[in-house]
C-alpha cells in the first residue's frame, strides 16, 4: 500500500519535472489557473497528510515504549517478591 503510494508520488513528481505542461493540463481540469499552482497545492496537502501520519506514528511508538517500561516495572516487582520468599 505504502510502496504503491510512494511509487505513484515519485512518478508524478518525475513527470511534472520533465514535462511541466502536464501540470497545466491538470490545472485546467481542476479549475486552478496555472500548473505551478497545482503543484504547490498538491504539495501542501501531501505535507499536511504526512505530518498527521507522523503524529499518529509517534503516538504508536509512545504506546510501545510505555508497554516496555510497564513490563520492566512489573518484572522488577516479581523479582522482589521472589527475593522475599
Amino acid at each position: 500500500m505504502w510502496l504503491f503510494f510512494w511509487i505513484l508520488f515519485w512518478l508524478t513528481a518525475g513527470v511534472v519535472a520533465l514535462l511541466p505542461q502536464t501540470a497545466d493540463t491538470v490545472a485546467r481540469l481542476v479549475g486552478v489557473g496555472r500548473g505551478a499552482d497545482v503543484v504547490t497545492y498538491a504539495s501542501l496537502i501531501a505535507i499536511f497528510y504526512l505530518i498527521f501520519r507522523l503524529y499518529v506514528k509517534i503516538e504508536q511508538v509512545e504506546g510501545e515504549i510505555t508497554r516496555l517500561v510497564r513490563k520492566l516495572a512489573m518484572d522488577e516487582m516479581g523479582e522482589q517478591k521472589n527475593d522475599k520468599d
Binding site: 515504549i65 510505555t66 517500561v69 516495572a73 512489573m74
Partner: peptide, 25 residues
C-alpha cells in the same frame, strides 16, 4: 506499599495502566 518503578517518566495514563495491571495480579 507495593512500589512499581517506571525507568523513565511515561505520564499519568501509563502509571495508572501499570497500577491496574498490578492490582489485577
Amino acid at each position: 506499599a507495593v512500589c512499581l518503578r517506571h525507568v523513565i517518566n511515561r505520564g499519568l495514563g501509563a502509571a495508572l495502566g501499570t497500577g491496574f495491571e498490578t492490582a489485577k495480579r
